[in-house]
């Protein structure tokens, strides 16, 4: 298995709002404390953030309101100019790109979905979805054709001529998603796309999102303040607090080994079985592997029903179906008892 390729890397990103942020950062040696920042009258939104997002993964940034998630994701797309740091997209230094190059990159390589949809009120669904292409100067027939495809992808066929205000919140966000996909972006940002929706619709949209990603295989940076949502969707999670990333890792990692009390606070209510994967609980294959099998990527909650048929042990399979271990009933029960 080749190591996953990093699509987007950022190193030591700082973003301080307020007058004289640059000079302040230099004066303090590029590493001021929170107190120093607030005595200076600045607002810190991102502090020394480093992360890398791999090709084809869903990277979730989770944090409470005001922790700096939106600012960070806007720094990554350079909608907000970071005070300091380095951003590499495909190895290209984004912060060195001029305006023209930046427009180029955003037009063809990036897409973004917004918390409050950001649909243009004076345009129909079709025109909204086609708008990014229109801005690029794509001719009408081509862009509308492409927009229709995207609209059907998100299941809104038949609503092309509606206006945004005639749609429900969930439908509006589907339009937002279709629009962001219209340019076939390589890197897909979603800033709390489902936060403004009520819980039932949110759940439905998450399922929809998982379905889409199984087809599209985009590289995704997904923002949320909802830990459950993060766990459901993420390949990897970064948890932010006061502009800092306090822990980054797979959902399993974070639930099993929370780095700080703050993180533990979130993980407490999460049922382990929904996060921990068979691969993490399995024991070494001792020769007589049973017939019933489960993928190493399946969660324990998904594997558990198989034990109901009376099996004591399950075979755990890797990517290509080879046996890599066994999952024992007792281990599973013990894990589930822990919560």
């Amino acid at each position: 298995m080749s190591p996953p390729e990093a699509k987007l890397v950022c190193r030591n990103i700082w973003k301080l709002f307020g007058q004289g942020a640059h000079e302040f950062l230099e004066k303090t040696g590029g590493n001021p404390t929170l107190e120093q920042i607030s005595t200076e009258g600045l607002v810190s939104a991102a502090r020394n953030v480093s992360l890398s997002v791999n090709e084809g993964e869903i990277f979730v940034i989770m944090g409470l309101s005001g922790s700096g998630k939106s600012t960070l994701v806007r720094c990554l797309s350079r909608l907000v100019e970071p005070t300091a740091g380095e951003i590499l997209f495909h190895g290209e230094n984004l912060l060195a790109a001029d305006e023209k190059r930046m427009i180029e990159i955003r037009r063809h390589k990036m897409g973004m979905v917004f918390q409050h949809f950001a649909l243009l009120p004076h345009m129909t669904v079709l025109a909204n979805v086609a708008f990014p292409l229109e801005v690029q100067g794509v001719d009408r027939a081509t862009r509308e054709d492409r927009a229709r495809k995207m609209i059907s992808l998100v299941g809104l066929t038949g609503r092309e001529d509606s206006y945004p205000r005639q749609l429900s919140g969930g439908q509006q966000q589907r339009v937002g998603i279709a629009r962001s996909l219209a340019v076939e972006p390589e890197l897909w940002f979603l800033d709390e796309p489902f936060s403004a929706l009520d819980p039932l619709i949110r759940r439905e949209m998450q399922d929809e999102f998982i379905r889409l990603q199984s087809v599209l295989r985009k590289t995704i940076v997904f923002i949320t303040h909802d830990f459950d949502e993060a766990i459901r969707l993420a390949d990897r999670i970064a948890i932010m607090k006061d502009g800092e990333i306090v822990q980054a890792g797979t959902p399993e990692d974070i639930v099993l080994n929370p780095a700080t009390e703050y993180v533990e606070e979130f993980t407490r209510a999460v049922p382990r079985a929904k996060v921990v994967r068979a691969g993490s609980v399995m024991t070494r294959d001792d020769g007589d592997a049973p017939e019933a099998a489960v993928s190493a990527r399946a969660t324990i909650a998904e594997a558990a029903p198989l034990f109901l048929q009376g099996a004591e042990r399950l075979r755990v399979t890797g990517e290509s179906g080879e046996t890599i271990g066994v999952l024992r009933r007792d281990d599973v029960i013990e894990l589930m008892m822990r919560g």
């Binding site: 806007r74 909608l79 180029e104 990159i105 917004f114 990014p132 801005v135």
Partner: peptide, 14 residues
């Protein structure tokens, strides 16, 4: 709304 402005930038408006 600032999101709408962000949208404009994000899709590469001049």
């Amino acid at each position: 709304p600032s999101e709408v402005r962000d949208l404009g930038n994000m899709i590469g408006c001049t």
